[in-house]
Measured scan of single mutants.
Amino acid sequence: WIARINAAVRAYGLNYSTFINGLKKAGIELDRKILADMAVRDPQAFEQVVNKVKEALQV
C-alpha cells in the first residue's frame, strides 16, 4: 500500500511521509489500504484528497 500511495502522490509533487503528515494536519482519517485503492480506482477523488493535504501543508 505504501508503494502505491508513494507513486501516486509523487505525481502531485509530494512524497509519502509528507502526504501522511498532511493527512493528519488536514484531519483526514482514511487508512492506507483505502488510500491505495482510491489512487488506482478513483483518481479524481484521490486528487481531491491530495489537494486538501496540500492546503493543510500550505504547499
Rank of each mutant, 00 (worst) to 15 (best):
W1K: 03
W1P: 09
W1S: 14
I2D: 04
I2C: 03
I2N: 03
I2L: 09
I2G: 02
I2Y: 11
I2P: 07
A3P: 08
A3D: 11
A3T: 06
A3K: 14
R4C: 06
R4E: 15
R4I: 15
R4F: 13
R4K: 14
I5N: 00
I5M: 05
I5C: 01
N6T: 15
N6V: 05
N6H: 05
N6Q: 13
A7M: 10
A7Q: 15
A7G: 06
A7I: 12
A7Y: 07
A8L: 11
A8H: 06
A8V: 05
A8Q: 04
A8R: 02
V9P: 00
V9K: 00
V9D: 00
V9Y: 01
R10D: 11
R10S: 14
A11N: 11
A11L: 12
A11R: 08
A11I: 14
A11K: 10
A11D: 12
A11T: 09
A11F: 06
Y12T: 02
Y12C: 02
Y12L: 06
Y12R: 05
Y12P: 00
G13F: 03
L14F: 08
L14D: 01
L14Q: 01
L14I: 09
N15F: 06
N15E: 10
N15G: 08
N15P: 06
N15D: 10
Y16H: 04
Y16I: 06
Y16L: 08
Y16K: 01
S17V: 12
S17D: 15
S17H: 10
S17N: 11
S17F: 09
S17A: 09
S17K: 14
S17T: 09
S17Y: 11
T18D: 11
T18M: 08
T18Y: 04
T18P: 02
T18K: 12
T18Q: 13
F19I: 01
F19H: 00
F19E: 00
F19W: 03
F19G: 00
I20H: 07
I20K: 09
I20N: 08
I20V: 10
N21D: 11
N21W: 08
N21Y: 08
N21T: 10
N21F: 13
G22Y: 04
G22C: 02
G22P: 00
L23T: 04
L23Q: 02
L23A: 05
L23I: 11
K24S: 11
K24L: 12
K24D: 14
K24N: 10
K24Q: 14
K24C: 03
K24P: 06
K24H: 12
K24F: 13
K24I: 14
K25L: 11
K25E: 07
K25T: 12
A26W: 03
A26Y: 03
A26P: 01
A26K: 03
A26L: 09
A26E: 04
A26T: 12
A26R: 03
G27V: 05
G27K: 13
I28D: 02
I28Q: 05
I28M: 07
I28R: 02
I28E: 05
E29S: 09
E29T: 14
E29C: 06
E29W: 11
E29R: 10
L30T: 15
L30D: 10
L30E: 13
L30Y: 11
D31Y: 02
D31E: 11
R32T: 15
R32F: 15
R32S: 12
R32V: 15
R32W: 13
K33N: 12
K33V: 09
K33I: 12
K33A: 13
I34L: 12
I34G: 09
I34C: 05
I34Q: 08
I34N: 12
I34K: 09
I34A: 08
L35E: 00
L35W: 03
L35P: 00
A36Y: 15
A36K: 03
A36W: 13
A36V: 11
D37R: 07
D37N: 13
D37A: 04
D37K: 08
D37S: 05
M38N: 02
M38L: 13
M38K: 04
M38R: 02
M38W: 07
A39L: 06
A39Q: 03
A39M: 09
A39T: 11
A39Y: 06
A39R: 01
A39F: 08
V40G: 14
V40E: 15
V40R: 06
V40H: 15
V40W: 11
V40S: 10
V40M: 10
V40T: 14
R41E: 15
R41W: 13
R41P: 01
R41S: 13
R41G: 14
R41Q: 15
D42G: 02
D42R: 10
D42F: 07
D42K: 10
D42T: 07
P43H: 06
P43N: 02
Q44M: 11
Q44K: 15
Q44F: 12
Q44P: 12
Q44W: 14
Q44Y: 07
Q44C: 04
Q44S: 09
A45P: 01
F46W: 10
F46Y: 01
E47V: 06
E47A: 12
E47S: 07
E47T: 05
E47Q: 07
Q48D: 12
Q48R: 12
Q48S: 10
Q48P: 01
Q48I: 13
V49Q: 03
V49G: 01
V50L: 03
V50F: 02
V50G: 00
N51W: 11
N51A: 08
N51P: 00
N51H: 12
N51F: 15
K52G: 05
K52R: 12
K52E: 13
K52P: 01
K52S: 13
V53W: 01
V53T: 05
V53S: 10
V53D: 00
V53L: 04
V53I: 05
V53K: 00
K54M: 11
K54I: 13
K54P: 00
K54W: 06
K54Q: 13
E55S: 12
E55Q: 11
E55V: 12
E55M: 10
A56Y: 10
A56R: 05
A56F: 12
A56V: 15
L57R: 02
L57W: 06
L57Y: 08
L57A: 07
L57M: 11
L57I: 13
L57V: 10
Q58K: 10
Q58L: 11
Q58D: 12
Q58N: 12
Q58I: 14
Q58E: 11
V59G: 13
V59Q: 11
V59T: 13
V59S: 15
V59Y: 10
V59N: 12
